[in-house]
């Protein structure tokens, strides 16, 4: 145990400033500062507000992580940082900080892919990932289905959203229903009192002709519009909006499409492991439906606990730990933040 490398991870791709520390697959610290409340009144993340918050939060969050783990930067073997994808200005704060820490403490730095980190974090809870695996990553910023051949070197995108991210649809529907931002948790809560089959909302890109071109892609824009039309029709008619039923039916439509395509990808490739990640993976219905459907085909579902599904530094540290163990070379000190970093690149 003690001779496994001690890895620190820094995450600033959106509105969470995260610093995590792991030893091998063991989580030692997961410190987070969030600017989510500053964004709430805008109904979405404001990039400049997020960047300013990262600059203020990075030093205290680092201090908390080191204190929680009971280590100093001198003890750390390598520093990993999210280099992309994400908000350009926000990423830059984390990347520049990681370089400052690495330079001053004379440690190697790894610029890593945020989405691969969402996959890697599961190793902290369930140990090494069987490869190949299929990963379904869904959050406010991304909705992707990936084939993970080798988490250290290669991830193949199978599909992604062609319009809104799944988490974005949760935020917009929550706003329609008068629920707070971010929309995931309140919709999950409301849905428990509603009927998932109350309203037949559309399932995007599941018709045969869509499947031909977009077998593993997602679309949530039409669903969001259908919910808006349904709610507005109720309001125009002067009838009360049954919030729990709308929440449950909307959530069911999202989870139905996400899980059916993820299971189809597993079956198509003969893969027995499905990993869920991203903020939407904290949704209780998504977890339940994925497990129920996967069980039918003998597919194992791995989902980290909700706190590790949302953006955090531990996931970056977990991927860094995997890269160090795999003998991947560190990044150069001029590594750029890349807001559009391709999925196929795990580390730069």
């Amino acid at each position: 145990m003690a001779d496994e490398p001690l890895i620190l991870g820094i995450e600033t791709s959106c509105d969470e400033t995260g610093v995590g520390i792991v030893r091998g697959h063991t989580l030692l610290a997961d410190a987070i500062a969030s600017s989510v409340e500053e964004h709430a009144r805008f109904g979405g993340v404001v990039p400049e507000v997020a960047s300013r918050a990262h600059l203020e939060a990075i030093v205290p969050t680092m201090r908390r992580a080191l204190d929680d783990a009971g280590v100093t930067l001198a003890d750390i073997d390598a520093i990993a940082v999210t280099a992309g994808p994400g908000l350009a200005g926000a990423l830059l704060v984390g990347v520049a900080a990681a370089k400052g820490y690495a330079l001053a403490a004379d440690k190697p730095v790894y610029g890593v892919n945020h989405l691969a980190a969402h996959v890697a974090v599961d190793t902290l809870e369930h140990g090494p990932l069987p490869e190949p695996a299929i990963a379904l990553l869904v959050s406010g910023g991304h909705s992707s289905l990936l084939l993970v051949d080798d988490l250290a070197t290669g991830v193949t995108p199978l599909g992604a959203t062609i319009d809104d991210a799944a988490g974005e649809a949760f935020d917009k529907v929550a706003r329609l229903l008068g629920l707070p931002f971010p929309g995931g948790p309140p919709i999950d809560r409301e849905a428990r009192a509603g009927a998932a089959d109350a309203i037949p909302f559309p399932r995007g890109l599941t018709a045969p002709k869509d499947l031909a071109a977009h077998r593993f892609d997602f679309s949530f824009s039409g669903l969001k519009t259908a919910v808006a039309r349904w709610v507005e029709a109720k309001q125009r008619a002067g009838e009360p909006v049954p919030v729990p039923d709308v929440a449950a039916s909307f959530q069911e439509a999202v989870c139905d499409v996400l899980t059916s395509k993820a299971i189809a990808a597993c079956r198509d490739r003969g893969i027995e492991t499905l990993v869920l990640g991203g903020g939407v993976a904290a949704n209780s219905r998504l977890r339940a439906l994925a497990e129920q459907r996967a069980a039918k085909y003998g597919i194992g579902v791995r989902v980290p606990r909700p706190k590790l599904c949302t953006d955090n530094g531990a996931m970056v540290a977990a991927l860094g730990s995997h890269l160090v163990a795999a003998g991947v070379a560190p990044s150069r000190l001029d590594l750029p933040a890349d807001s559009a970093m391709p999925l196929t690149i795990v580390s730069v």
Binding site: G43, G44, V45, E168, D171
Partner: peptide, 8 residues
Amino acid sequence: PDAVAAAG
């Protein structure tokens, strides 16, 4: 800051 949300 420009109060323009990235999403929504």
